[in-house]
């Protein structure tokens, strides 16, 4: 349902994506791993048009992603995003954050949106925090609200941009648990992450990216257990055994 075809992207003179070819099938969980600055996040941000790309083509369900075209709104309501730093709206409660999109973008009825909002908050384990404002919540709770906000759009896929990187270690598990449940329910997910355990257990496929190209890709367990490319081997050794 998501296709990337020879995607190039530069920031000024620095070329961060040098011809990315990839596709994500419906119901698939794809993890993108790789060193910092390799272009992982940029790929996600191009898919829902937060960034433009210079060359190649990205399409979602056959619809070309063009951040300057009106169709981008359509794409964004189908492909939600969860950010590293949560980016909840601090002036609104958890529940208001969740129903913001359904109410004001999709123009759903207030009663229906609120009811589903509460259900979603319960689903991420935060039913009792509906009326709390984001600054009153822990990082892990904020990220779970952000996931509920993404789900409220009833998307066909969700992009996760290092969703646990800004969390205290003991809060990571809660967020990963919610994501694992989503994967089990058949949600299409693209996850940029440094959590190799999550990638191994939950992902169907893993892409290893370095220097703006996909160095290696394959089934999650195979790639993570028996990486073929020396750079993948080197990266995984550093991540898994840092000492």
């Amino acid at each position: 349902m998501i296709e990337l075809n020879d995607v190039h992207k530069s920031f000024g003179k620095v070329e961060v994506l040098k011809g990315i070819n990839a596709s994500v099938q419906k119901g698939e969980v794809v993890c993108i791993i790789g060193p910092s600055g390799s272009g992982k996040s940029t790929i996600l941000r191009c898919i829902n048009g937060l960034e433009s790309y210079d060359r190649g083509e990205i399409s979602v369900e056959g619809l070309k992603v063009d951040r300057d075209a009106p169709s981008i709104v359509n794409i964004r309501t189908q492909v939600s995003m969860v950010f590293q730093r949560f980016n909840l709206f601090p002036h609104r409660t958890a529940l208001e954050n969740v129903v913001e999109g359904p109410l004001y973008v999709k123009k759903e009825s207030r009663a229906a949106a609120l009811e589903r909002g509460r259900t979603l908050l319960a689903q991420v384990g935060l039913a009792e925090k509906a009326d709390a404002h984001p600054p009153q919540l822990s990082g892990g709770q904020q990220q779970r609200v952000a996931i509920a906000r993404a789900l409220a759009m009833q998307p066909k896929a969700i992009l996760f941009d290092e969703p646990t990187s800004a969390l205290d270690p003991e809060l990571v598990g809660d967020v990963l648990g919610v994501m694992r449940k989503l994967a089990d329910d058949g949600m299409t997910m693209v996850v940029v992450t440094h959590e190799m355990g999550f990638a191994r257990d939950v992902a169907d496929r893993v892409l290893f990216i370095d220097g703006g190209v996909i160095v290696e890709q394959g089934l999650a367990k195979a790639l993570l257990n028996q990486p073929q490319h020396p750079r993948t081997q080197d990266f995984l050794r550093r991540v898994l055994h840092p000492l």
Partner: peptide, 27 residues
């Protein structure tokens, strides 16, 4: 206002004016 706020608004499909009205101006 943090750029992340604007990106979050865009990521749920808000256009420029809606982002201003619902997210940026109140803050």
């Amino acid at each position: 206002i943090d750029k992340g706020q604007i990106e979050a608004a865009q990521s749920i499909g808000m256009g420029w004016w809606l982002t201003m009205r619902r997210v940026v101006l109140p803050q």
